[in-house]
Amino acid sequence: MLRSTLFVAAALTALALPSCTESKAEAPKELRFTVIPDFNKAKLVENCATLSQLLQKKLGVPVTYVPSNDYTMAVNALIANKVDFAWLGGKTTVDALDAGKGEAMVLATRDIDLDFKTYFIANKKLVDEGKLKKVDKLADLKGLAKDFTFTFGDKNSTSGHLMPRFFLTEAGIDPNKSWKGECGYQASGGHGATLKAVASGATDIGALNFSYWEKASAEDKAAAPVIFVTPGYVDYAWVGHARVGKETLAKITEAFTKLDKNNADDKAILDAWSAKEKFQVADGKLWDSIRKVRDSLPPGFLQ
């Protein structure tokens, strides 16, 4: 009895599978997305729930948020068909474009992402005492580096780790060796952790996502003032996979780019995602510069 049931089930699955692949060109019955965990996860889940609801209304199909535990998992989820589109950082966007072998594409990006920045922040006490001051170029910190401790974000984070590492190296400061002691980095996501470490004085200098700092509490901002702003670069993007069909991807892109700051529901999403005015269409080629930065760093760069 059990065996025959299993057989029927297997036969049904076998029948159902090819029909699934064929129906790909049609509109999918459900859409799934993930986001990289780059700050407080409770808040992230809340934001994603709001987004699911809104997109469901706009696209007419259920939209589900699938959590990812780290940056790489978000990329793998997109490639492995666990999700249809994903909110990725600069480096992870490049990872997804590469691993997607032409199937993955940039759908939309925030207005701020085309000119994204990293802030170098310092503990207020050190700035007040005159030991550190705002600089125009990172090379000015070169002589001082050995007297201060430094921390930055997750090694997969573009704004929190790769870009500051790149700019430091360009300025002749070795992120691993030039600072006092070993350079610390937050093991997970953690722009918030960097801000807290610098604001509390646990670490003297830190580098983080400028948009996170701008949105932080006035108290934290005062305790960890900005001492350097990096040149702009491209960063976060919504990346989709072609297997849901180009039409669906176009619809998703449209849903994002048409979010309107004057509409309360839309504004909630734009605010949660820290977009200034809107999401906009962007060419994947813009991320080539990030690819160069990523490829200049071998996996062993932290040792």
Partner: peptide, 8 residues
């Protein structure tokens, strides 16, 4: 973990 993150 680093190699996984760098897709190696």
């Amino acid at each position: 973990k680093m190699n996984l993150d760098w897709r190696q």
